[in-house]
């Protein structure tokens, strides 16, 4: 088990799960329980005084007994994201915030300039910021300078299920920030994508749609948890070097000469 902590929090399960788009609250709850995740992401949306949908949802999450990581999803400006973070801190009672400042709607690519600015404002105000970013090393460095202690590069566009679109970039980020907890956030579609991220040495994966939109979300959540664990174990075991040419695995020495 890696000793890596996330703002001091040890996560036994390195799969972080989103809570949106499940067929029902019961299936969401079962997916969280069966996959034994320690942390889930949540959000804030407008509440109707008459319907109060948010109250029931919050009760459900509290009963699951997991840590919550509120997000600033949908925020396009620094002010929006900072204000949303303050509102989330009060409602959820946590300093943790998954900071999203969206720069472009088709790809939901982060606006990294706004992200760094918002991260600085929030860390100065005592938040523990988990920034949704790209693989850009310079931006990563600026986020650390701003006080972030975790970086969360995207695997692929949110909800796309494409997997790791830029393996080189992710590998470079891992090598460049060897001591920083790194989480691949967004774009994963299959458990093998989670394994691959962990095999690269990432410390956790965060996903939502791949589980929530699966035919059987509970079974898929379990599969992702297993794959995440397998990838983590493989990285710790030390994968072999890739070779260009074949190398016999059966010893050549002592082979009979039968020509």
């Amino acid at each position: 088990m890696s000793a890596r902590t996330f703002y001091g929090q040890a996560l036994a399960n390195r799969l972080l799960l989103g809570t949106a788009q499940y067929p029902s609250p019961a299936i969401l709850a079962d997916a969280v329980k069966q996959s034994a995740v320690d942390m889930v992401t949540v959000s804030l949306r407008r509440e109707s005084g008459a319907q109060r949908a948010g109250q029931a949802f919050w009760q459900l999450i509290k009963e699951l007994g997991v840590s919550v990581l509120p997000n600033t999803a949908g925020c396009h400006t620094v002010k929006e994201a900072v204000t949303t973070a303050h509102m989330a801190r009060e409602v959820f009672g946590t300093k943790s915030i998954k900071l999203e400042v969206i720069g472009e709607d088709d790809t939901l690519q982060p606006d990294v300039f706004g992200l760094v600015e918002a991260a600085r404002i929030l860390t100065d105000d005592g938040f523990e910021v988990w920034p949704y970013t790209t693989q850009d090393l310079i931006v990563g460095g600026k986020l650390l300078d701003a006080g972030c202690e975790v970086l969360m590069p995207w695997g692929a566009p949110i909800g796309s299920g494409q997997g790791l679109n830029d393996v080189f970039g992710l590998r470079a980020m891992r090598a460049h920030f060897p001591d920083v907890p790194l989480v691949v956030d967004a774009g994963l579609g299959l458990p093998s994508h989670a394994s691959q991220a962990m095999e690269l040495g990432y410390d956790a994966v965060l996903l939502n749609t791949a589980v929530a939109k699966a035919g059987d979300p509970v079974a898929m959540a379990i599969a992702f948890a297993d794959a995440t664990r397998a990838g983590q174990a493989a990285h710790q075991a030390g994968p072999m070097e890739v070779r260009d040419m074949a190398e016999p695995s059966t010893p050549v020495m002592g082979k009979a000469f039968l020509l």
Binding site: Q21, R46, E47, P70, N71
Partner: peptide, 25 residues
């Protein structure tokens, strides 16, 4: 913040946002 709601005055045309926990990714 919650503890400032009692002293925050509301006037004609103010935009009030009321948010609650919701599912998120």
């Amino acid at each position: 913040p919650h503890d400032q709601r009692g002293e925050t005055t509301i006037k004609e045309g103010d935009a009030i946002e009321v948010l609650a926990p919701m599912q998120g990714g």
